Simulated scan of single mutants.
Amino acid sequence: MAALITFADLTARPGFDNADQAEAEAVITDASALVIQIADLATPWTADTVPDVVVPVLVNMVRRGLSNPLGLSGEQLGDYGWQAQGGGAMGLYATRQERAIIRRAAGTLGAKNATLDSDLPLPAWRGAGAGFENEFLDSL
């Protein structure tokens, strides 16, 4: 699976000055795979075709993956402590809002069509054709 952004794209944004390149590239590849899976396109995006609106989503996913790889929501160290608020995704996974952005960019937000097949035969009244319906309606 190819990464949708490069390490240079990542370090061009604030907060990644001291990022380890090998670790960041691994997380970028993982985040890219998740974005491609969420987009659910017949032809997956590449680094050249990924929409610009998806790049910040990838950057935020990578930021969470690098800064909080265990997905912790709180920590207490002596007098110091912090607690994450809300039920948002921690770690590498996309939030609900990020999923919506990805799906909107992919054009897969909303309802889809599904073709259903059945091996069951049609009832006799369904196979009678147009004449049957007309005779039935005339009798009313």
Rank of each mutant, 00 (worst) to 15 (best):
G15A: 09
F16S: 10
F16G: 04
F16K: 09
D17S: 12
D17H: 11
N18Y: 13
N18D: 15
A19T: 10
D20I: 07
D20C: 09
A22Y: 11
A22E: 14
E25W: 08
V27F: 03
V27L: 10
I28C: 03
I28F: 08
T29G: 15
D30V: 06
D30Q: 14
D30W: 04
A31K: 08
A31C: 15
S32A: 06
A33H: 09
A33K: 15
L34T: 11
L34V: 05
L34N: 04
L34I: 14
V35C: 03
V35M: 01
I36L: 12
Q37A: 15
Q37G: 12
I38D: 02
A39F: 01
D40K: 11
P44T: 03
T46H: 05
T46N: 01
A47S: 14
A47M: 02
D48K: 10
V50R: 02
P51L: 01
P51Y: 00
P51K: 05
D52I: 02
D52H: 03
D52V: 10
V53C: 05
V53D: 06
V54P: 03
V55S: 00
V55D: 01
V55K: 11
P56F: 04
P56E: 00
P56R: 04
V57C: 07
N60Y: 01
N60A: 13
M61Y: 06
M61R: 04
V62L: 03
V62I: 10
R63Q: 05
R64I: 00
R64M: 02
R64V: 00
G65W: 00
G65A: 00
G65M: 06
G65P: 01
G65L: 03
L66N: 02
L66H: 03
L66D: 05
S67T: 13
S67E: 14
P69F: 01
P69H: 03
L70E: 13
G71S: 01
L72P: 02
L72G: 08
L72E: 14
L72W: 08
S73H: 08
S73C: 07
S73A: 08
E75M: 13
Q76S: 09
Q76W: 12
L77C: 10
G78K: 09
G78S: 09
G78F: 06
D79P: 07
D79L: 15
Y80P: 02
Y80K: 14
Q83P: 04
Q83V: 14
Q85C: 07
G86Y: 13
G87S: 15
G87Q: 14
G87A: 15
M90I: 09
M90Q: 14
M90L: 14
L92Q: 03
Y93T: 11
Y93V: 11
Y93D: 12
A94C: 07
A94L: 08
A94M: 10
A94Y: 05
T95L: 01
R96I: 14
R96Y: 11
E98M: 13
E98G: 08
R99H: 01
R99Q: 13
A100H: 02
A100C: 00
A100E: 08
I101D: 09
I101H: 00
I101P: 02
I102F: 04
I102V: 08
I102M: 01
I102G: 00
I102T: 03
R103F: 00
R104A: 11
